[in-house]
């Protein structure tokens, strides 16, 4: 269980998170929605310890994220970054197998390569992509390589930051199915940020809307359309008129 309690984070005068409270039960998929620049990515980075909250507590299985062995903690996580964040200097397969070639999960190079190619296949990429460098791939392909890297070591908890942005509808469907499969088959806990409502409905068990630095609404995906919250309604229907200002 991932638990965030009264988490605050400001960057200078920009108070991004203003008391976030959220619980994500183990083995469930939570999708965070909200306007651009509302701090969704910052929220995920706070859980990972990439950004230190100004106040509040974040626990994973009741253990505060800043306590204990950092490597062991991070070994439980996989993360798909918004921009892919692939290492330019490494070929695709070494990006995917990065964790499998170093540290506690290190294994023989041939085995790591085999796993990388299998993960690439799972995200819809053929084995001949393996030897290419990230700069040789399209944005959508880079995103899928990044997804393959996030799931390569089969982590317990996976964060997806806009996994389908830049993908065509068919490939978005493939990725949505894959995320759903990871949660149901592997029993992983997933937190996903997306603006794609098709993805929300395909991926989520639970949906949380972040607005004004707080969780505005949280509930099962089945109740999303009947949330009774004007902010959620405006967001999920993409209406320019409503309580969410379009000038931000």
């Amino acid at each position: 269980m991932i638990t965030l309690t009264d988490v605050h984070k400001a960057f200078g005068p920009n108070h991004v998170l203003r008391g976030v409270n959220l619980e994500v039960p183990t083995g469930t998929s939570c999708v965070i929605i909200g306007g651009s620049g509302t701090g969704k990515s910052v929220l995920l980075k706070c859980v990972l310890g990439l950004v230190t909250p100004d106040s509040g507590t974040i626990t994973v299985d009741d253990v505060p994220v800043q306590d204990g062995d950092r490597d062991a903690f991070l070994a439980r996580f996989g993360m798909l970054f918004q921009g892919g964040a692939l290492f330019d200097s490494l070929p695709v397969w070494q990006n995917v197998a990065f964790r499998l070639m170093r540290g506690a999960l290190k294994r023989p190079k041939a085995e790591a390569r085999e796993i990388a190619i299998e993960k690439l296949r799972r995200v819809g990429l053929s084995p001949d992509v393996a030897e290419k460098f990230p700069a040789e791939l399209s944005g959508g392909m880079q995103k899928r390589v990044s997804l393959a890297r996030a799931i390569a070591a089969e982590p317990e908890i996976i964060f997806f930051d806009e996994p389908t942005t830049g993908l065509d509808p068919i490939m978005s469907g493939v990725i949505n199915d894959l995320i759903r499969e990871i949660v149901t088959e592997m029993g992983a806990t997933a937190m996903t940020i997306t603006h794609d409502m098709t993805s929300v409905r395909a991926i989520a068990d639970q949906v949380a809307m972040l607005h004004g630095g707080k969780i505005r609404w949280v509930g099962p995906v089945g109740q999303l359309d009947e949330s009774g919250d004007a902010y959620v309604d405006q967001f999920i229907h993409g209406r320019p008129e409503g309580p969410i200002e379009t000038l931000r």
Partner: peptide, 17 residues
Amino acid sequence: GTMKVTEQIDALVTLST
């Protein structure tokens, strides 16, 4: 610097490196 702005440094951290 480029690795930092493209989140590659953050990615390294999440990969326990």
